[in-house]
Amino acid sequence: METSKFSKFSAELLGTMVLVLMGCGSAVIAGANGTTGVGLLGISFAFGLSVVAMAYAIGHISGCHINPAISIAMVIAGRMKAGEAAYYIVAQILGGIIGAGVLLMIASGKPEYSLAVNGLGQNGFDALSPQHYSLHAGLIAEVIFTFIFLLVIFGATSTKNINGGFAGLAIGLSLVLIHIVGIPVTGVSVNPARSIGPALLVGGEALGQVWAFIIAPLVGAALSAVVWKYLLEKN
């Protein structure tokens, strides 16, 4: 029996919510340095493990895209119809906003927490970059990291891959790797829905910069889809 659109929509919404809540939550709630924080490695693994967990929870329902860049890349690669991708993207953005909202409610329970100061794990460049990397550096990083991320996804989920049962693990670990390198640059997006949710609630400069974390991942994903379809997988 074919999975209904409502089930797929719900799966993508919930999956993206979990990704934002757990990934960004690791930075906001548990990311402080020292004995009480998980640090950069912990945040990196939180994002990757969120994808692994959701891949095995909802992968059989919707494919666990939980990322507009993935859905658009699948359309370009011929693995998905544009109409289906459209409602996936709506679900993902809503899920990202809900995840950021839940994180805000939890974080606000600590008296010292300030949305303006502590944020919600939003992405940024220049003054909003964790280590003050420029817009130019941030755009390059997001395009290349998304390109790599999508190559792993295409390869891991290919029907020619005899180890397809481990796709969720490979994809999640690749996201860990990307975050280890990329967190100092932009905080790592590679996912417009992950960036839109926190930016909307934080507002101000974070919202003003979110365009970069919509465009760059989409460019990287599109390039990856073209390379995969016409260069790597072509018979």
Rank of each mutant, 00 (worst) to 15 (best):
E12Y: 01
F45S: 02
P184K: 09
P68C: 08
G155C: 13
G172I: 07
G83H: 08
K81T: 14
K160L: 12
K5E: 09
S189Q: 04
H132S: 14
G172N: 05
G182Y: 04
S195Q: 03
L150M: 15
I140G: 10
A225W: 06
S195I: 05
A86Q: 01
S174R: 00
Y113G: 02
E142I: 09
V152Q: 07
P68A: 14
P111Y: 02
A199L: 05
V210D: 04
N33M: 12
N235P: 15
N123R: 00
N191S: 08
P192V: 06
S44Q: 13
L150N: 14
M74D: 08
P184M: 13
N235L: 08
A193C: 12
A85I: 11
A170P: 03
P192E: 00
A141G: 15
M80L: 15
A55P: 02
F125V: 12
Y87Q: 15
L173W: 14
P192C: 03
I72L: 13
C64A: 15
F47L: 08
L19V: 13
F166I: 10
A212Q: 06
V227S: 12
T157W: 12
L169F: 13
V90R: 06
E2H: 07
S189Y: 06
H179G: 11
S4Y: 09
F149Q: 06
M17N: 11
L128R: 06
I97L: 12
N161W: 05
G119V: 03
F125Y: 13
G121M: 05
